[in-house]
Nucleic acid binder design. Structure first.
Lengths: 230, 230
DNA sequence: GCCACAACTTGACAATTGTCATGTCATCGC
DNA sequence: GCGATGACATGACAATTGTCAAGTTGTGGC
């Protein structure tokens, strides 16, 4: 059974937070709560979707296996984020696989439950669309990064997203290991290492999973500069 | 006002085709029908969404401008396809811009209309989710291609998608000009030219916007082969 | 028909990235 | 504590791609 703290986290998720109280209660009471170990599979590509997943703790990666065997990381989720909404409601197979990259707590909302609530109250549909749109938007942003930015610039943006400061210097922790960061940014671990060294002149120091940014603004300038002027 | 043939095309779109007759009639009668010239802007990034768009004829590209000025083509739509669903229903700004890449006929469904119908009948929400999921899926597929395949392999897949044949040889027309194909596949026009030449040994001949594929299966093998074994 | 222009192709070169090999360093089981 | 393991860094090299420049070929205007 779920702890109260877990329920509190679930309530704050983008998927649930805009719903009326009585719907949230119903969803929470019928949800399945489960812990996953690092490396454990949550679902596989081509498997049929039976639930929507909300991350309560830990990190989850969604990835796709190309026929060649190469793995492409599509997104990485953490506390308060949900995935699988659009798939669950349409009874179609997952286009990606999901794996816990750290120990995780995940809440599964059975899709039939969501569907029946949705027929009662169309507002649920809007909530699901909100979550789905967020994913769509983040995929679009990723595509733009891959198509229009160099490796080092993608790393710079990644670092910028870890900090909520607007200007000045700051220190951030890399949320997961560098192999996964490399995959998420569409490069090999070796290229990530090189990208980090390129950021040194811009005022970035990396030590283990700890990054020091001398000046947010100059890093931002670097990320948005035309690659030809570097 | 719309021709009957245009209405017929709209009915076949993924967005509308699964809806009950009376809803379709209402949507069609309140929709805005418009023609766009080649190069004309349909909407701009950051603009607020007021409608869902259904392509009845011609080709439309969705793209994003990076702060550096580089353009990243996110998707290209044609007859029967729709875009902007998730954005229109949430009153948020478009994450991309849309432009007609050929002369186009487009139907615009005002979002307030869609929203009010959705509150009447949740089934509409499912239709919108279906369209949105299709976009999500195609973005995921694109990400996989960009991250896990070489340029020539992406071109091979692009050609394969133009043909509906399962085996043997075939001829296909390139649907839009090569500059746009290059953008859609995340490369420069020069790289596209080179990718085409690499496909020659695999049995692909390009002449203007006309492509000849000697054997679908061997092209498919090429697209899915590990890049290290080429 | 002729010119201008844009779309494309091709070659040479530079920059970026992947690949392979090697070495270091922390962590973990024992 | 000690070796094994995996994560990571780095150098050398090859492959891929972007960039720049030059040339070809349609198309549309006049």
């Amino acid at each position: 059974m779920a702890h109260e703290t877990q329920k509190a986290i679930a309530r704050q998720s983008l998927l649930l937070k805009s719903l009326p109280e009585h719907h949230i209660d119903k969803l929470l009471s019928h949800a399945i709560w489960r812990r996953y170990d690092r490396g454990e599979t949550i679902f596989l590509q081509e498997e049929e979707a039976k639930a929507v997943h909300v991350v309560l703790a830990g990190w989850v990666k969604l990835f796709r296996m190309a026929p060649t065997g190469a793995e492409a990381v599509v997104s990485v989720f953490t506390r308060g984020e949900s995935f699988g909404e659009a798939v669950a409601l349409r009874n179609v197979p997952y286009p990606v696989s999901a794996e816990a990259v750290s120990a995780c707590e995940i809440m599964h909302i059975p899709s039939p439950l969501l569907l029946s609530l949705m027929r009662e109250d169309p507002e649920i549909g809007v909530s699901i669309l909100a979550s789905t749109f967020t994913h769509l938007h983040s995929l679009v942003a990723q595509l733009e990064q891959l198509k229009a930015q160099t490796g080092a610039q993608r790393v710079a943006e990644f670092l910028l997203n870890l900090s909520d400061k607007v200007s000045g210097g700051c220190e951030v922790e890399l949320p997961y290991d560098k192999m996964l960061i490399a995959g998420r940014l569409g490069m090999k671990p070796e290229s990530l290492s090189r990208a980090f060294s390129r950021l040194k002149p811009v005022g970035v120091k990396i030590n283990r999973n700890h990054a020091e940014i001398a000046d947010i603004q100059s890093l931002r300038d670097y990320a948005e500069s035309d690659s030809s002027e570097k």
